[in-house]
């Protein structure tokens, strides 16, 4: 047998990235801004989404893609806010990929939407690695998770244009060091936008929604 070394230099995620590029092109053609919303399980992504939708639903046309391991619980919550929602069950898969988004979009009328929000599977590691064709990524970090998370999971905070420090009302009851968390976020990602939010008290939601509206208007 002849021994053979085949030179490849091929991107391991090349197949995903190709579909992501197609998604991105489609979104641009239809004038849809796409946000990939990420964060740990229990960080408050869905609640934040509910509160965001209530504030924006009269101003712009929004649709939501809900990534969930097995259930439709989140999708049901979002539907109550009066926006179109597509459920993707990953059946144990830890992240959404570009092909799943491509498929989900076939049942959406993209021409009728200004903003598409994709709520990714709760996870601080894997979703950061998979381009789905979004315009920008947002990561929710809740106060109870601890101030050390940005440096423990640097990729997701490096990839995200915006971080929401959520459940900020719980700050007095924890040892979360806000200054240290902000410092770590900024050294890791000097241009990152940071919001402090509380979905129970309403802190920061107005600023966050104003910022989001500006992203759509651009």
């Amino acid at each position: 047998m002849i021994k053979l070394e085949i030179k490849l230099m091929k991107n391991i995620l090349g197949a995903n990235d190709e579909i992501a590029a197609l998604n991105r092109k489609l979104f641009a053609e239809r004038g849809v801004v796409v946000m990939n919303l990420m964060g740990s399980p229990g960080s408050g992504k869905t609640t934040l989404l509910e509160k965001t939708l209530v504030r924006l639903v009269d101003k712009i046309k929004i649709a939501v893609i809900e990534g969930d391991l097995f259930t439709a619980k989140d999708a049901e919550r979002i539907e109550r806010a009066g926006v179109e929602v597509i459920q993707i069950n990953t059946a144990g898969g830890c992240h959404l990929d570009a092909a799943m988004i491509q498929k989900a979009c076939t049942s959406l009328d993209l021409n009728a939407i200004d903003l598409l929000i994709v709520e990714n599977v709760g996870n601080l590691v894997c979703p950061a690695e998979f381009d789905i064709g979004e315009n920008f990524k947002a990561v929710v970090l809740s106060i109870t998770e601890g101030d050390d998370k940005p440096l423990k999971y640097p990729l997701i905070f490096k990839e995200s244009e915006v971080t929401l420090l959520n459940k900020i009302d719980l700050l007095p009851f924890t040892n979360f060091d806000l200054r240290s968390a902000r410092e770590d976020l900024i050294t890791l990602h000097p241009t990152i936008k940071i919001f402090e939010t509380s979905c129970t008290g309403g802190t920061g939601l107005e600023d966050w929604c104003t910022w989001l509206l500006q992203k759509v208007a651009r």
Partner: peptide, 15 residues
Amino acid sequence: LQSGRELLVDFVDCE
């Protein structure tokens, strides 16, 4: 960032 995000298959040795 310039490098550090690589995810590549460089080569395959086979016969």
